[in-house]
């Protein structure tokens, strides 16, 4: 079996998960395609560093996160503003504490696109962490390895990310007239 075949067998099975994570990071499907392709090429280039029997999905996600961070840095150098959750929340008025009387009913009113958009507006570290914990249901330890931080940081990022996501959805709800201030 040649190297490409071995790689495809090990890595392409995780394509959907890597793609979903790319959408979570990028917010848009076109940019996500681009990120996924670069991730697989980079992974193929470094396949020798992958230890068979270890978590291939986590390995791919870590590579993707590194590529994404490199891209963010380039954007930052180019003078582009990065989407920061604090800025977005500040615009909506963070002092308005949202009280959801029935969270489960309320969040069902949002479309998938709105939920994904709200996620994409979170800070990069919270966005990926929350996605990996809630959507991919990875363990805190795996997420810590992927994102290169301590498990405690994963917990706090997840918690802050979920709170920020709730605030984003609450602001959508206000705009849609589904919730009061």
């Amino acid at each position: 079996m040649d190297s490409a075949e071995t790689f495809e067998k090990a890595a392409l099975g995780h394509l959907d998960a890597v793609y979903r994570a790319a959408v979570a990071l990028c917010g848009g499907r076109q940019e996500a395609d681009d990120l996924v392709q670069e991730t697989y090429l980079r992974a193929f280039e470094r396949f020798e560093s992958f230890r068979p029997g270890t978590n291939c999905k986590a390995w791919l996600l870590r590579i993707m996160r590194n590529i994404w961070i490199d891209r963010l840095r380039r954007k930052k150098i180019a003078g582009n503003e990065l989407p920061l959750a604090e800025q977005a929340v500040a615009e909506e008025g963070r002092d308005k504490e949202t009280v959801w009387s029935n969270a489960e009913d309320l969040i069902e009113n949002f479309s998938d696109e709105q939920v994904i958009k709200a996620l994409s507006e979170l800070q990069e570290d919270q966005r990926l962490t929350l996605f990996l914990i809630d959507v991919e249901q990875l363990s805190q330890e795996d997420v810590a390895r992927i994102t290169g931080v301590a498990t405690g940081t994963v917990k706090s990022r997840t918690s802050r990310g979920r709170a920020a996501l709730k605030e984003r959805l609450a602001s959508y709800a206000r705009k849609m007239g589904l919730a009061g201030h």
Binding site: A4, F7, E8, L12, L15, D16, V18, Y19, R20, V23, A24, D33, V36, Q37, Y40, L41, F44, A103, E104, I107, E108, F110, D112, V115, I116, L119, L130, F131, I133, D134, V135, Q137, R162, L165, K166, L169
Partner: peptide, 28 residues
């Protein structure tokens, strides 16, 4: 509820066959 809604939002999302083909072709 937030976690479950987030999960369901991504639940039906899959990479396009075109993307998979492109990756395979490039590797080949």
């Amino acid at each position: 509820a937030i976690a479950e809604r987030l999960r369901s939002a991504f639940g039906s999302m899959h990479a396009s066959p075109e993307l998979a083909d492109r990756i395979s072709q490039t590797l080949n």
